[in-house]
Design a protein around this nucleic acid. Structure first.
Lengths: 243, 243
DNA sequence: AAGTGGTCTAGACCACCAC
DNA sequence: TGGTGGTCTAGACCACTTG
């Protein structure tokens, strides 16, 4: 049975009225976190319109962070955002568990390489200085939510390449090297995810994301690590306190 | 003369190849900041495709923050992002000028009201406590880039309603009330802009944005102001230092 | 008045995923 | 194998902006 939309007052475009109806159903809890929405074809029929218009409505809800898509499996309701304070020493896993989520970390790659001009500019290293690159992917409730490139100062952290990176990096540095990260420079901006990050997260190129870069030094001001994080835009809320 | 795209290897979807060609032209400087792109119909013809596909390519570049649209006037190349540190006492104007931009502030509304339950939860006020609401819109080079709702503790700031809000709020508090904002709690998350913020910025509902909330207190911990900012996503880069 | 983006129709074929 | 989203065509009319 079609919804009473196509026949309603046309005060706003059809795709926004479809959006509002879907949003209402989500808020009423008729569909809840991680539940699949009806298919685009079914929605188009239900609202007596075409797939193009149904997709416009879905794109709106996706942009607002209310729903997300998974591969070609369909559209799902987004769970609450993870609260994340990038200024603090940080265990992704502890933080997720505290918020009632199931975290998982995959180490995609560990490789010795040298600093690019871009990295040198960000860190104060010289171009060509040795660094260890660690690429990780992190999940919440089995949904991949971020990929990151970590560049470690290998001169300052001998033997770092041999450790297990599926655990908290901050704890590793503290326990194995007695390094405290006390100086941080953090940069954040919203942007679309493109390859290779989009592929790594199994989303389409152009999916909205948040890029978080963090440059950390020890108490003496020596560069320790640079972290480049690519988050799906609907999965996090940044919180920072200044005292 | 059509670009050599439709005939090129179809390793990726057409709209991504169109995106790449346009991105290249932007990077080569053939079109630069605030320059208008060819119309969607011209692009469709040039790349031997339809408007729908051309719009997909443009939407990609918009999501990446490379271009933006202005009403029904066309698509324009985005200028560099404004670097913004929300943890510091902050003059929008000074910051913009330092970065070579032309700032402007409009006060849309100044109104006495009372704290909602939502605001009470964010600030520690009681629901119903008196506050002054200031709504402002801010421009960079005559492009509106953010709207904000400022809630001021009117008990703590007698007579605040009478001042000029087109200048820096922080300077106003310092000069007129000798208040230093030393405790701040900041929250940021990417989301789509919807009405009324979208209308206030003359963009379509669903345009990508960044919401920045800031709760500031004085040295004694008394609530002074809560600021709710809605930025266009391609206009800013957040930078924070932790020492 | 002409041109622009905004919205919408009614289809089509493809790649991938689950059954 | 059938259903899903992903991509794409070839048009249409409308609202608004600009000359």
């Amino acid at each position: 049975m079609p919804e009473n939309i196509a026949t309603s007052e046309a005060g706003s475009p059809l795709y926004l009225r479809v959006r509002d109806q879907l949003a209402e159903q989500i808020e009423r809890g008729e569909v809840t976190a991680n539940i699949k929405l009806p298919s685009e074809r079914v929605l188009a029929e239900r609202f007596e319109t075409t797939r193009v218009t149904a997709r416009l409505a879905l794109a709106q809800l996706e942009a607002e962070g209310r729903i997300y898509r998974s591969n070609r499996r369909g559209w799902f309701v987004s769970p609450p955002r993870l609260i994340y304070n990038p200024t603090e020493d940080y265990s992704f896993s502890d933080n997720a568990v505290t918020q009632g989520r199931l975290p998982r970390t995959e180490t995609l790659e560990v490789r010795c390489t040298v600093a690019s001009a871009w990295l040198a500019g960000k860190t104060g290293l010289e171009t060509g200085d040795p660094v260890v690159l660690v690429r990780r992917r992190r999940y919440l409730d089995e949904r991949p939510v971020l990929v990151e490139n970590i560049y470690l100062n290998s001169r300052h952290l001998p033997g770092i390449k041999g450790f297990d990176f599926n655990r908290s990096l901050w704890k590793l540095l503290r326990d194995q090297y007695s390094v405290d990260l006390v100086q941080k420079k953090i940069e954040m901006f919203p942007t679309a995810l493109v390859d290779p990050q989009a592929s790594a997260l199994s989303v389409n190129a152009g999916t909205a994301g948040l890029c978080v870069n963090r440059c950390s030094r020890d108490a003496a001001g020596v560069f320790v690590e640079f972290d480049e994080e690519f988050w799906l835009h609907d999965t996090l809320s940044i919180q920072v306190n200044v005292a």
